[in-house]
Design a binder for these strands. Structure first.
Length: 482
RNA sequence: GCCCUCAUCGUCUAGGGGUCUAGGAUACCAGGUUUUCAUCCUGGCGACAGGGGUUCGAAUCCCCUUGAGGGUACCA
């Protein structure tokens, strides 16, 4: 029985993006692989920006990707509460302890005073930092104060022992007396995260590299309180196309998990893709399901350098999943997109057999399900020529005319309008007219669909039915006789 | 500014001193699949940031430079 305990602690101050959820994903994989527990904790100490709505988003996306948690918000557990906003008393207890031990102190400096201090330091060519002026201040009877953590006078080496990066050294003198309790009474992130991880018995802290530089501060708190240190693992960041860290509250919708869900990316494809961002199994396999990934995953094989999120490759991967997925599942998933496109009114208003054929025929051209709108348009809208002049030019040719007339005659004679039979007819007419290859198919495509590109014409014809196909052939012929 | 991290094809990556004239994937290009586009198949283009060491030998180890990213908040 393993006692590995991991956590995913998002802050509900924005929609969750692929960078955040990749951290959740690695934690989840590692937890599952080692039979450990994954805790979901909400870091909502930023009262001004945290909302319940964002909280719901996070849980929704986690569920969608299949990242179930063992403990925490929405699940419960023995180490709650799991929202930092509900743990204020706990933080206060430890802050008071530090205050009593004189490892922390109240600071009455105003924002104005702090700004002034930093400006002066900059002008004097110094590094801006809090100078500790309130360290020995008398306790004042005013509520407007913050609590600062006392960094040691003597420089001390602080070593972060990182599972991915090895030992990373810092000097304590590089840090000033940082705030652990804000003037609104709430603990700051760097303090709360330590208390929670320690009290929740988290054994490994797997998080983004953006937290690496703050880890020494947290280690100082662990030590001041006598807590055992967890193991750390700092993951490489996922970068945007400009190679910058993905931001919460980004202007670019494209990075949000909800946006991928909405556009019709499959959760298993996004899971697969994200797992490969910063990790590689070392073999040549790329398409892997969750079980395989869990089986092959190892924290020691995680990369150190940041990875650009490449939508092109995700598209390819999602397409692979769409091509190989169960057709009935594709059917179910496609309904909302077809309704959205206005092709069907409701779930009940469908020729099931026909739709299955359409989906099977068009699925290989789909990067994501939202493209169903354009990929299946042909089957749901009135026949019309995309470019009537170009169509005329294409069809106005004696040989093409022969082909179309021949097809009308032969197709009319078909009793069973199946793709096999249609194929036979196509071949026969090609032979009879002596028109083959693209000279045969391209004008025919225009004649049947009004467009110059689209799905396989044999299957297309079967789906559209005899009457419609004959109609279209006639219409196309009229185009050049009128 | 200071601190930390990182550095292989455009992108994701394999590679951990000789098997590397650097492998795979994606993207792109070309040809093929007696059907344009697409799918699929085959082939092609394309990288060890630079400079010093160490070594018989370095993409691999060390140092410097450069570049990129992160942190340095009463955000998380």
């Amino acid at each position: 029985m393993s006692n590995l305990r991991l956590r995913f602690p998002p802050s509900p101050t924005g929609k969750i993006h692929v960078g955040n959820i990749r951290t959740a994903l690695f934690n989840w994989i590692w937890a599952r692989k080692n039979n450990g527990d994954l805790v979901l904790r909400l870091e909502d100490t930023d009262a001004a920006r945290s909302t319940r709505e964002f909280e719901d988003f996070i849980i929704k996306e986690l569920n969608w990707l299949g990242l179930d948690v063992d403990e925490g918000v929405g699940v419960g557990g023995d180490y709650g509460p799991y929202r930092q906003s509900e743990r204020k008393d706990i933080y206060d207890k430890y802050i008071n302890q530090l205050l009593e031990d004189e490892k922390a102190y109240k600071c009455y400096c105003s924002q104005v005073e702090l700004d002034k201090m930093r400006d002066e330091q900059k002008e004097a060519g110094e590094i801006p930092h809090y100078d500790g002026r309130c360290r020995d201040a008398e306790d004042k009877d005013i509520e407007d104060y913050v609590v600062r953590f006392k960094m040691p006078f003597e420089n001390e080496k602080i070593v972060v022992d990182d599972l991915i990066r090895g030992e990373v050294e810092f000097n304590s003198e590089e840090f000033d007396d940082f705030v652990i309790k804000k003037s609104d009474g709430m603990a700051t992130y760097n303090f709360a995260v330590v208390i929670d991880d320690a009290l929740m018995k988290i054994s490994q802290v797997i998080r983004g590299e953006d937290h690496l530089s703050n880890t020494p501060k947290q280690i100082m708190i662990y030590k001041a309180l006598g807590f055992d240190l967890p193991k750390f693992a700092h993951l490489p960041l996922i970068l945007d196309e400009n190679k910058a860290k993905l931001k919460k509250r980004s202007d670019d919708d494209a990075v949000y998990v909800g946006e991928f869900r909405r556009k019709g990316y499959l959760p298993e494809a996004l899971f697969n893709f994200l797992a490969l961002l910063g990790w590689s199994p070392g073999d040549q396999e790329e398409i892997m399901d969750k079980d395989e990934i869990v089986k092959k995953f190892d924290l020691t094989r995680v990369n150190k350098s940041g990875a650009v999120f490449d939508i092109e490759k995700l598209n390819w991967m999602n397409n692979q999943y769409i091509q190989s997925m169960d057709l009935n599942r594709l059917y179910d998933l496609s309904i909302p997109y077809l309704i959205e496109a206005g092709y069907i009114d409701s779930k009940d208003d469908i020729d099931e057999e026909r739709l299955l054929k359409i989906l099977d025929l068009t699925r290989d051209g789909l990067d994501y399900l939202e493209q169903l709108s354009s990929e299946t348009e042909l089957f749901f809208t009135e026949f019309e020529f995309e470019d009537i002049e170009a169509a005329k030019e294409e069809i106005n040719d004696p040989e093409v005319k022969n082909v179309l007339n021949g097809l009308i005659k032969e197709l009319n004679a078909l009793e069973d309008f199946s793709s096999d039979n249609i194929k036979v007819v196509f071949n026969k007419v090609r032979k009879d007219t002596g028109v083959g290859g693209r000279k045969f198919y391209h004008p025919l495509r225009v004649a049947l669909t009004g467009r110059s590109s689209g799905p396989d014409l044999v299957s297309f014809s079967e789906i559209m039915g005899k009457e419609e196909i004959i109609n279209r052939l006639n219409k196309s012929l009229e185009l050049i006789t009128s």
